[in-house]
Nucleic acid binder design. Structure first.
Lengths: 185, 185
DNA sequence: TGTTTCATGTAACATTCGTTTCATGAGCGA
DNA sequence: TCGCTCATGAAACGAATGTTACATGAAACA
């Protein structure tokens, strides 16, 4: 759309990546990015419209960035998909996007009417992508669920403690646990 | 303390278990539990004092309830600790407490000054308890981190989808993965 | 040049927020 | 019965919320 609009999305996104969405209000945001609440409403219709536009951009950036590093998941073993997932996730440039997504997902648990729409189209757990890298199996779905949970759980731990070493070791341990096993054991 | 105070804590807790803490305001809460914002401030000093009192009660109830079912973790294999953890967590009577704790923990990521204090004394990841059930090992800490992440990740998935069957299967799969392995492999 | 569209500033709107002030009983010990 | 503490109600406080009305200036187009 408008050029000004995209600039406002970018700046608002930067602000939300830092401050989150739970306590977001228009005037402090507008002040921080050098505009006014009046303008934000003018360009996005409402606060809700602004957040929607920003979260769309979040989703687009994540997909664009991650698609670049992953390639076709059906051609890779699950272990390398997990490693690629994790390395990308905790990368300095990416982790703040995951943090924002995480926040919205958890807020949607108690208040799906307000925060659910922001997640539209986001399989915020990465179930499908992981499932695609798994060979057919009786327990494929449970296995994909477990892998996604490991990523999500370790990400939460990383976001809370910023202990990249320990969480990364935990993921490596998980990969080793998977290595010596057939799925249907 | 006061009897009235404990009654207000209990009712406020029920309300917060259902509605969460992110968008909590005094007047709707007070209206729902049959009192007034005036009274809540009178008994707890401030909104912050109320939330602190409620979260203290959350922590106390969780510890009391969970201690009853777990016993001494050093005397049990990690697998049974994980099973006990999970069964307790997704139990109808308990899961809402975990949900509230989860919300506060995630809000504290972006706003530790506001939400961090509510978590005081809460090892909201269950790292220590799990670590206590593990035998000494070079990778004990990474292993405990992984186990805690599996619980946290599966809990998030369960809270978002309410698919108890699939998440429970994923945990069973994880337990089987651990079973055939020495820790230092 | 005149007109129209777009972007923006100023200021206000009604509402809600956490909190406070003031008043009023209810119960209870002296 | 007199005071005193505790609990409560009614109402207001200033601040902040999302949103809107109105005016203005610049740019684009006729």
């Amino acid at each position: 759309m408008s050029e000004r609009r995209e600039e406002l999305i970018e700046k608002s996104l930067d602000y939300m990546l830092e401050h989150g969405v739970a306590g977001l209000t228009l005037r402090p945001l507008a002040g921080a990015i050098g505009t006014s609440a009046r303008l934000l409403v003018y360009h996005f219709g409402s606060k809700d419209g602004l957040i929607t536009a920003v979260m769309d951009e979040v989703r687009a950036r994540i997909q664009r960035s991650f698609a670049g590093v992953l390639g076709d998941p059906t051609k890779k073993p699950v272990k390398s998909v997990m490693q690629a997932f994790w390395a990308w996730t905790i990368h300095r440039a990416n982790v703040k996007y995951m943090r924002l997504l995480f926040e919205v997902q958890v807020l949607a648990i108690h208040n799906p009417a307000m925060y659910g729409p922001y997640l539209e189209g986001t399989s915020s757990s990465w179930l499908e992508l992981i499932e695609a890298s798994l060979p057919p199996s009786r327990e494929k779905r449970a296995f994909a669920t477990l892998c996604a949970a490991v990523i999500d759980g370790l990400l939460l731990e990383y976001l809370s403690t910023r202990d990249g070493r320990r969480t990364t070791r935990a993921l490596e341990l998980f990969n080793r646990l998977m290595a010596g096993r057939t799925l249907d054991a």
